[in-house]
Design a protein around this nucleic acid. Sequence first.
DNA 1: AAGTAATTTGAAAGCATATTCAAACTTTAA
DNA 2: TTAAAGTTTGAATATGCTTTCAAATTACTT
Lengths: 333, 333
Amino acid sequence: MATIRDVAKEAGVSLGTVSRYLNGYTLKKTNMDKIAAAIKKLGFKQNYLAKGLKTKKSHAIGVVVNALTDIFAASIVTSLEDFLEKNNYELIIADYKNNIKLLNEKLKFLYSRNVDGIVLFHVEQAVPILKEFRKKKIPVVAVDTPISGFECDTVLLDNYHASVEAVKSLYEIGHRQIGIISGGQQGYVGSERLRGYVAAMKKYGIFDRELIVGGSSFKDSSYDATLDLLKNNHQITALYSTNYYMTIGAIQAINELNLRIPADISFIGFDDYDISTVIKPQLTVVAQPVAKIGREIGKIIIQKITNPADLNYQTKFFKAKIVWRDSVINKNF
Amino acid sequence: MATIRDVAKEAGVSLGTVSRYLNGYTLKKTNMDKIAAAIKKLGFKQNYLAKGLKTKKSHAIGVVVNALTDIFAASIVTSLEDFLEKNNYELIIADYKNNIKLLNEKLKFLYSRNVDGIVLFHVEQAVPILKEFRKKKIPVVAVDTPISGFECDTVLLDNYHASVEAVKSLYEIGHRQIGIISGGQQGYVGSERLRGYVAAMKKYGIFDRELIVGGSSFKDSSYDATLDLLKNNHQITALYSTNYYMTIGAIQAINELNLRIPADISFIGFDDYDISTVIKPQLTVVAQPVAKIGREIGKIIIQKITNPADLNYQTKFFKAKIVWRDSVINKNF
DNA sequence: AAGTAATTTGAAAGCATATTCAAACTTTAA
DNA sequence: TTAAAGTTTGAATATGCTTTCAAATTACTT
């Protein structure tokens, strides 16, 4: 492998000059041409390890997901990876499997590998190692959930208004008994989505505590909750489930009860992935702008890496939008 | 940050001794104790950038997936990441979005970042940069599909026998008209799965060219193919779809035609993810041992990194297994 | 054309580690 | 007890790059 030194010799300039060239300094035109030619001739490539040793930057960003098989995380990481690679950053992935103990371990690992930044998916609570990142001024971006006990840039869905919109849409087409399969109060995402639902239902004067079920944000809990709700309450005309996996569980339960969508019950799901269009009828859902979110995370983290003195932590909200398909009936007709 | 030099001073030995300690050489017990104490006291952590510069190893493995949102890739990467992290390797992810041009670019990127190994998902054709990896003796492991034009270690599903088993199971419970939604001949996975189906159907003397439809391995093609097949052929008693996304498309089509599973038609899908249990009735599927596959990839790549002189490329096959649920009817009763 | 200011350059030092080599120290055996 | 063999050690060198600093070159004024 050719080094900067070989390039210098070939071009007939000093090694410092080549380094400056490589780092975008402007120098005498003749020298620039000579260096460019030498680089091409030798097939020279910068050694990122050596560069990193000097600059204390690895050009790697650690991405810590709750689960790589979580389609939400995967689809955001997809666009994030693209953005970062274009900016010459590599993306080191770690999966903490929704286990906070493991989270700290994975972060320690990334810390020891000199990542220049960290993207944290769906973390509710600060873990000890985060302080070390802060000490070293390594930027952290929280995604999907603000981290309690640690101030940092945060990228969120406007969950509250997503629910408000869902309820509003249903209300406007005549629904009054609108049930929610909620992730419960313990998690940020779940409680925000519930909060929006409650506010909207109250605003329209159709709030009823009995319409709220659920407790955790996984498929099985949603299945049980939906079964319970629909067995005991035959007035409900519409159901709103509040994430992808809960949508899956709810649909299973509805199938189990042999209820027809939307004849017996209208349904509005959350997140727009495969399920939405496999099910018959195809599902109306609240969709998140995942590609945009991924790009925004990339922008923020690069901005903060470039400018580590900027201690101004921002929270950026994204708006969900409803994708209309066939699972909701208009009761006004 | 404490360096090896600080540790040496603290322990009262030379820096070379500390380095040897760190790299697992055995030395005088008293010195080992002194060094261990110094490391603990100073909170010393090795600098992987400097280490990499010296050893020309980054302890990073590039993982190149066709799509991160492909649940098959994601679930394998999940177990791979776990395995590699435990062995102190980081995993750099790249997504080539099923685009062979992009694939070469992403590989170039990983090449320039000094990865110690490459894992390639679902690549049919060699790309130029692979030769460079070979020159530098950087091991490559192909997953899911052998790379034509490039010899390397390969981890595959035994697709042929997966199909044979599926057909056999259906045959044994009385099905004779068994349709296949196939990915077609152009891709390795699709043609292997088709080949197994054809062989088994012929073996039982129930082969009929009309029962084969499909052409590409995506949802929409599968939807169209299924619609076509079932509209024109009312004898079919069972349908076999040959990957996750084709299963989704096929189910959509069956729903569209208002056919009931399994009363009107039995169905056996491929890959065991969310869809299998959302649909009513729950799906019988051919499932791949993804966790095992991920671990095996990790083992192979580390073995080859540790032993780069080993030019003996192996192909490892994994067996699929059928997960029985409610979408297949026993016609013998 | 000469003096000053501005820019560009090369040499050298440094980043944190691994490894070679010769010297120092242990152990073993006679 | 001592010589030979074996082991452990420290100093020095190397990895490929960035950056500082002073010297050299170029550009600008008058």
